[in-house]
Amino acid sequence: VVEKVLDRRVVKGQVEYLLKWKGFSEEHNTWEPEKNLDCPELISEFMKK
């Protein structure tokens, strides 16, 4: 389960987000493609920053 979106990048035309996973430490954060995500409210919250 995604706890928080930390960053955004574009790699080869694909948007990816750096995710903080609930119950895991920062060392387990991962970059995931936008198309694989199902957390629009967290993405929206990140984009407001």
Rank of each mutant, 00 (worst) to 15 (best):
D38Y: 03
M47P: 03
G23T: 07
Q14R: 13
T30I: 04
K12F: 09
I43S: 02
T30Q: 08
V11R: 14
Q14M: 11
S25V: 04
W21G: 02
V11G: 05
V10C: 06
K4T: 07
V10G: 03
K49T: 10
E45H: 03
L6C: 07
K20A: 12
R9F: 00
E16F: 10
V1A: 07
R8I: 06
N29V: 11
I43G: 02
P40H: 15
V15Q: 05
G13R: 07
P33M: 14
E45P: 03
T30R: 10
E41Y: 07
Q14V: 12
Q14N: 07
V11F: 10
W21Q: 04
M47Y: 07
L42N: 03
V2M: 08
L19I: 15
P33S: 14
L6P: 00
T30K: 11
F46T: 03
K12S: 09
I43V: 12
Y17K: 00
V1F: 07
F24N: 09
K49F: 15
Q14I: 15
V11L: 13
V11E: 14
D38M: 06
W21T: 02
K49G: 14
T30E: 04
K48P: 07
E32Q: 10
K48N: 15
L37M: 13
P33D: 10
L19G: 01
K20S: 10
C39A: 10
E45W: 03
M47V: 09
Q14G: 14
P40L: 11
V5R: 01
C39D: 10
N36F: 08
S44C: 12
E41S: 13
W31Q: 04
K49D: 11
H28K: 04
V5I: 14
R8Y: 08
M47A: 14
K35N: 11
V15M: 08
E26M: 09
N36C: 06
K48T: 08
G13F: 01
K35Y: 08
K48G: 11
K12A: 08
T30A: 08
V1R: 10
P33R: 11
K12G: 14
I43R: 02
F46M: 15
L19Y: 02
P33W: 08
C39E: 09
H28E: 02
L6D: 00
R9G: 00
V15C: 04
L42R: 11
L37S: 03
R9Q: 05
F24Q: 15
V15R: 04
V15E: 07
E45M: 12
E45V: 08
K49S: 10
L6N: 03
P40G: 11
W31P: 02
K22Q: 08
V10R: 07
L37C: 14
L37T: 08
V10F: 14
K48M: 15
L42A: 11
D7I: 00
N36T: 15
S25Y: 02
R8D: 05
K35E: 13
L37P: 00
K20P: 01
E32H: 04
K12T: 11
G13D: 05
N29F: 06
E3M: 02
R9A: 01
L6Y: 04
K12V: 07
K20E: 05
S25G: 15
V5N: 00
C39Y: 05
L37V: 13
L19Q: 01
E3L: 03
E27M: 12
D7F: 02
F46C: 09
D38R: 15
R8T: 12
K49C: 15
K48W: 04
Y17S: 00
V1D: 03
N36W: 06
V10P: 01
V5A: 02
S25F: 01
L19F: 02
N29R: 07
E26W: 09
P33Y: 12
F46P: 01
W31G: 01
D38C: 06
R9E: 00
Q14K: 13
E16K: 03
K12L: 14
V10M: 14
L37F: 12
V11Q: 14
Q14C: 08
L18D: 00
P40D: 14
K35T: 13
P40K: 14
C39G: 03
G23N: 14
T30P: 01
K12N: 09
E26Y: 10
E41V: 11
E32K: 08
E27H: 11
K35L: 08
M47C: 11
D7P: 00
V15P: 08
R8S: 11
L42G: 03
L18K: 09
E26N: 12
P33N: 14
E41W: 10
K35M: 15
N29W: 04
D7S: 09
N36I: 04
L42P: 05
E34I: 06
W21I: 04
M47R: 11
H28G: 10
F46K: 02
E3H: 04
W31K: 02
K22V: 14
S44Y: 09
R9P: 00
V2L: 03
E16D: 03
E41K: 13
V15I: 12
P40E: 13
S44I: 10
G23M: 09
K48L: 09
K4W: 04
E26A: 12
Q14E: 15
W31E: 01
E27Q: 13
K20C: 05
K48C: 06
R9V: 01
Q14T: 11
K20R: 10
V10A: 06
P40N: 11
V11W: 08
I43N: 01
K48E: 14
V5Y: 00
P40M: 15
T30D: 04
R8N: 04
H28Q: 12
V15A: 10
T30L: 03
E27N: 05
V10N: 04
V15N: 03
L18Q: 09
K22T: 10
D7K: 08
F24H: 11
K4M: 09
V5L: 12
E3P: 00
E34Q: 07
I43H: 00
D7Y: 03
K4A: 09
L18E: 05
L19M: 15
F24D: 04
K20G: 06
P33I: 11
K48A: 15
T30W: 02
W21V: 02
C39F: 04
R8P: 00
E32L: 14
K4V: 06
L18W: 07
Q14P: 01
T30Y: 02
K20W: 01
R9H: 03
P33A: 15
S25L: 06
H28C: 13
V2D: 01
E45G: 08
S44M: 11
E3W: 02
L18F: 12
G23Y: 06
D7E: 12
W31H: 00
S44E: 15
N29K: 06
N29D: 04
E3T: 04
N36H: 12
P33Q: 15
E32A: 10
K35F: 06
E45R: 07
S44G: 14
C39T: 06
E32I: 08
T30H: 05
D7L: 04
W31D: 01
L37R: 02
S25C: 09
E27R: 12
E34H: 07
L18R: 10
W31V: 01
I43C: 08
Q14A: 08
K22G: 08
E34Y: 04
